[in-house]
C-alpha cells in the first residue's frame, strides 16, 4: 500500500501571533515553524501502519519554498520513506493545493492528511482533493483500520461518532484523537538526512480563487472583574441579566 501524506509548514500552534499593525499580514517576528499538528498525526498513523505491514510505503509531500524542507525532514525522521517538495513561490489557496496534490496522488492507495491547518483554519484541501480525484473521503478520523483495500474509519461528528467503510483509494483526514505522534529521537533525525527528498516543479498552472486582503486583530473583550465569593458572582450575573 502506497500512502501519501501531504504536510504543511505552519507557525508554531502554541505561539501567540497577531496581525501587523498595517493589516498586511501576520507579525511572525521570532515565531518558530512546525509541521501542522494534524498532519503530524497523519504521518504518525501512516508510520504505525508501516510498522505493522512492512510493504507500506510513505511519501511526505509539501508545496512551498526551500524552507519547507525542514518540515519534510521531520516527516522523514518520523518514519516516512521519501519526501517530495513541489516548488512554488506563487500565492496559494486550498484549491491550488488540491489541484497540485490531485496530480501527484495518482497511483497512491491512500492520502492521509490533517483535517485543517492551524494557521488558516480552513479545513478545505483534503475534501477538494478527494472531489478532484473522485475518491471517497472520511474526514475527522479518530480510528482507521485497513484490511484488503477497504478502510474502516471511525470519525468524529457534530453529535458523536460514526463508522464509515470505504474502498481504497481514498482520502482520510485526521482528528486529534487518532493518535499521539511520537517524539523523534536523534538517530531518526540523522537517518532522515540520508532519506530521499526530491524537488519537483508544479504540475498545474492553477491560480488561487481567493486571497486574504487584510488581517485585523479581533476586538478586545471589555475588562472583567474578580469576585470573592459565589454569592457575589450570582449577584453579578443577575445584574448582567444572564441568570
Amino acid at each position: 500500500m502506497k500512502i501519501l501524506c501531504p504536510i504543511k509548514r505552519v507557525v508554531d500552534p502554541y505561539a501567540k501571533v497577531r496581525p501587523l499593525s498595517d493589516g498586511s499580514g501576520l507579525d511572525i517576528g521570532a515565531v518558530k515553524f512546525d509541521v501542522n499538528p494534524f498532519d503530524e498525526i497523519a504521518v504518525e498513523e501512516a508510520v504505525r501502519m508501516k510498522e505493522k505491514d512492512p510493504t507500506v510505503t510513505i511519501t511526505a509531500v509539501s508545496i512551498g519554498g526551500p524552507e519547507v524542507e525542514e518540515q519534510l525532514r521531520k516527516a522523514l525522521a518520523m518514519g516516512a520513506d521519501e519526501a517530495m517538495l513541489i516548488e512554488n513561490a506563487l500565492p496559494l489557496d486550498s484549491s491550488v493545493v488540491a489541484a497540485e496534490l490531485a496530480h501527484f496522488a495518482k497511483g497512491y492507495d491512500l492520502v492521509l492528511m490533517g483535517k485543517q491547518s492551524t494557521d488558516d483554519d480552513n479545513g478545505q484541501a483534503a475534501q477538494m482533493l478527494a472531489a478532484k480525484l473522485n475518491w471517497p473521503q472520511a474526514t475527522f478520523a479518530s480510528s482507521v483500520s485497513i484490511v484488503d483495500g477497504i478502510a474502516t474509519v471511525t470519525r468524529e461528528t457534530d453529535t458523536g461518532e460514526e463508522t464509515l467503510v470505504l474502498p481504497l483509494p481514498a482520502v482520510i483526514t485526521t482528528d486529534l484523537r487518532l493518535n499521539e505522534p511520537r517524539y523523534i529521537a536523534l538517530p531518526g533525525i540523522i537517518k532522515a538526512r540520508t532519506k530521499p527528498l526530491s524537488k519537483v516543479p508544479r504540475a498545474t498552472d492553477a491560480g488561487p480563487k481567493s486571497r486574504v486582503v487584510r488581517m485585523d486583530s479581533p476586538p478586545p473583550r471589555p475588562a472583567g472583574r474578580k469576585v470573592a465569593r459565589v454569592d457575589e458572582l450570582i449577584a453579578g450575573l443577575k445584574e448582567r441579566g444572564v441568570l
Partner: peptide, 23 residues
C-alpha cells in the same frame, strides 16, 4: 458551519471548482 457542512461543502467546492470561504 458545522463538522458535517465542512465535510460536505468543501467536497462540493472541489467538484464545482469553486472558491471557498470557511467560517
Amino acid at each position: 458551519s458545522s463538522m458535517q457542512s465542512k465535510d460536505v461543502m468543501a467536497r462540493l467546492a472541489g467538484l464545482l471548482d469553486a472558491a471557498m470561504v470557511t467560517d
